[in-house]
Design a protein around this nucleic acid. Structure first.
Lengths: 251, 251
DNA sequence: AACAAGGAGGCACAAACATGCAACGAAATA
DNA sequence: TATTTCGTTGCATGTTTGTGCCTCCTTGTT
């Protein structure tokens, strides 16, 4: 990757996420922290970003116009994604479905990561366009625009001939007793199928989804291998661990 | 290979790929790196490209990843798209593949349009997220990142069970005698298949693609129903019309 | 105040670069 | 035909740039 290219990427990330941590950039761009520091220094002296201890900030108006601009980026989700990264290694076959948290995770995957990503979500596929060592396999179907994933019979059929090491499942509702649920039955079916063809299943949830339920059950919580959460009460943690799930909180 | 010829090739590659690495060019063009460096230096001093350490960048648009890259708004493409709109009606089944001109067309589709769009291009699918009365069917496959389309056996198989009223084919090279061609054989195969399941075929071409040829033939030009061009010489126009193609120029 | 995390500056090495020079072929000239 | 001239190319040379690692110093946190 060219230096100029990398610095432009840094600018884009800073503009999108409002702040960056040098060590995170190092992982995402697959260069040493020293190089990142030099880049940040340079960009700061150009006046493009504001260098601060341990990272950099976006320049200009820190005031966010929530009414007009839909902030896609969310710090909590980014933190969850960072936690998830430790379970992802070279040469894995990843199965990733939709959701903004999953999309954030994909953005934070190291550029040097090798492997295969299977997805039924066009935004996820597009976010991998710069990862030269990742083969992206898109699963077709009827695009469900609300969550930007392909669903339907074609999707189901295509999954029949695939397998994955790790399924990163986007979650809408989870309850330790009822299980994982979702408002649309078509999505529930596909998610269930995806879980069944994967060796391990990882999910990230923000607290607002914990202990909520919807109409259509995807699977019991014990189908999860890893559950990544914000800080949760130790009781709840025990409740999940009793089912054999590794629960990782952001402490 | 002549020097001038080689330099033109370099310009084309830079425009197409947005960045080049000197050592890559050396291999691709079978000349020493010294020569490439001399070329890049010369082209930079002409202001055609931006020279950087270890390679060169396209001038003008900053390097960005595909997901955020907005091709410089190109008035020509927009005009071609406007001409194409007249052939699109409610309740049609459209088949649309990749390319920036096709993407521009999709952006200009009326929000009220009803119908079905089949596509193997994630950006095209995403661009339709606000068209509530269009059902989007994505065709899966292996994502070919350079042109952002899904290709491969899965793609081919999926097309077997589909049909369309109008195929809007992205074109790279067209010549009245040789036909429509493209540098990658995998894309040629899929495009040929797409044409075969569609009642009509429409293409938009900018003048720089007229009368150019590449290695892999998609089909003869007479497979086209409509060809939308910029202003072309009447002779060329006749050449195509003789084959039964409606040629529409932007006069 | 103590300690870990982040940063500055120097060093080292490989990759990329500029420059001068010689070889080569094509066109022009004797 | 033989020779000259000239533009282009590849190679050898020393130089510069980019990057990672190391050491020592600074900052933020508890």
């Amino acid at each position: 990757m060219l230096k100029q290219e990398r610095q432009q990427t840094i600018i884009d990330i800073v503009n999108e996420e409002h702040k960056v941590i040098a060590s995170d950039l190092s992982r995402r761009l697959s260069v040493s922290e020293d190089t990142i520091r030099r880049d940040l220094k340079e960009l700061d002296s150009q006046g493009v970003i504001k260098r601060v201890h341990s990272g950099a900030l976006r320049k200009g108006p820190p005031v966010q116009d929530f009414s007009t601009r839909q902030e896609i980026y969310n710090e909590t989700k980014s933190n969850l994604a960072n936690k998830a990264l430790q379970y992802i290694e070279d040469d894995m076959v990843l199965l990733i479905d939709g959701g903004t948290t999953n999309l954030q995770l994909v953005h934070q995957l190291p550029l040097s990561l090798k492997g295969t990503v299977i997805t039924n979500s066009p935004p996820i596929a597009m976010a991998l366009s710069n990862h030269n060592d990742i083969e992206v396999i898109m699963i077709g179907g009827t695009l469900f625009k609300q969550s930007m994933v392909n669903l339907g019979i074609d999707t189901y059929e295509a999954l029949n001939s695939m397998r994955a090491d790790l399924y990163i499942m986007g979650i809408y509702n989870i309850d330790p007793e009822i299980g994982i649920s979702i408002p649309r039955s078509s999505e529930a079916l596909i998610k269930r199928k995806m879980a069944s063809i994967s060796t391990e299943v990882l999910s990230m949830v923000t607290n607002d989804k914990l202990d909520t339920v919807s109409n259509h059950i995807v699977c019991p919580t014990d189908h999860l291998t890893y559950l990544i959460t914000e800080n949760v009460h130790p009781e709840i943690k025990r409740l999940y661990e009793k089912q054999g799930i590794d629960i990782i909180d952001h402490a």
